[in-house]
Amino acid sequence: MSIDLTQDFFALFGLPRRFKLDETALEQAWHGLQAQVHPDRHAHLSDLEKRLSMQWATRVNEGFRTLRKPLARAQYLLELAGVDTALETNTAMSPAFLMEQMEWREAVEEAGAAAEISELEDLHRRLLAHAREVRAQLAQQLDDDHDFEGAADTVRRLMFIDKLQQEIDEALIALEN
């Protein structure tokens, strides 16, 4: 048997295909599916059953990973909608957004260089709040307006924010060490 690849992750988890998502329901569905397919449930069975179980459990984990994080979930929704986010090539962002990004980044670099832990933590908090606003916009575009082209643009903005957050984390780690 091969894994049914035509079934999307939302269907696999029994959830509506939306950006806004009930995290508790997702987690419960994940646990419920793993309770059926996890290799630990099939360890005493035939090699074939063990192999199938590993494939299924891997697929279920991939689905959980994809749906749990807002950015990955949005990218996946766009993929299902057939919208190419062309994340590597299409970096034609609005000048205003790029300017904003540069300002953020400079602030992070300065705080990092000056070893300002509290400044970095403050940036982190502000960025989190900003990410929340961008996600709300994404929900509007994906779930209500079905504006996938616009959503692709917002996804790219979210990616920049994500990257920046990682940089702040790394700067904090470097300072702690």
Partner: peptide
Amino acid sequence: DDFAARRMDNSIRTALAGHKVDEL
């Protein structure tokens, strides 16, 4: 072999039916 594959499919369907989460 074939039986095993069908059983696995079946258990996924059962899990999807939604009542397994509570039984867990």
